[in-house]
Design a protein around this nucleic acid. Structure first.
Length: 150
DNA sequence: GCCAACGTTGGC
DNA sequence: GCCAACGTTGGC
């Protein structure tokens, strides 16, 4: 069972919205590395940290699970959609998504500041310079450390 | 709002 | 295939 971190801007989609929706297609990913991980590596039942990015207090705010295999992101075919990709077509889709299910909120927000301060997380991807990938794997070791801060 | 990091695009 | 220009991400 693998572990992941998925970023979302809370203004766009927050952990509270996922709690209400229960399960949601993670659409709008337009990065090949992130797509490949969703398509090739993610399995139903994998654990996910839900992370709020580009906001006042960047932090891990909840837990989720991968709830579907990867399938084509329908927003790429919709000319009205923000994530429309005219170079993609249904017979040859370029972008994939997985569905994500709410598990629980963390007891409190585990802030980026705290994560950066933890000696055991010096090589945690979130703490690395120029980390822009919105989805990445988390080792079991890092997973447990982050949760221990809860 | 600034800026560093990094991905993508397109001309050559 | 190189690389400059440009766009986006995301912390601060």
């Amino acid at each position: 069972m693998a572990h992941w971190l998925m970023k979302s801007e809370p203004d766009a989609y927050s952990i509270d919205e996922l709690e209400l929706d229960v399960q949601e297609p993670w659409d709008g990913i337009r990065n090949y590395q992130a797509r490949n991980m969703m398509r090739d590596k993610m399995k139903v039942g994998d654990d996910v940290f839900f992370y709020h990015s580009s906001c006042k207090v960047p932090a891990v705010v909840g837990l989720a699970k991968i709830a579907s295999a990867a399938y084509p992101d329908p927003t790429q075919f919709d000319p009205e959609a923000k994530y429309y990709d005219p170079k993609s077509s249904p017979d040859n889709p370029r972008w994939m998504l997985v569905e994500v299910a709410f598990v629980r909120k963390t007891k409190r927000a585990i802030t980026l500041k705290e994560l950066k301060a933890h000696p055991g997380l010096s090589d945690f991807r979130l703490n690395m310079r120029g980390n822009r990938l919105s989805i990445f794997p988390v080792s079991k070791e890092h997973w447990d450390i982050v949760l221990s801060l809860e």
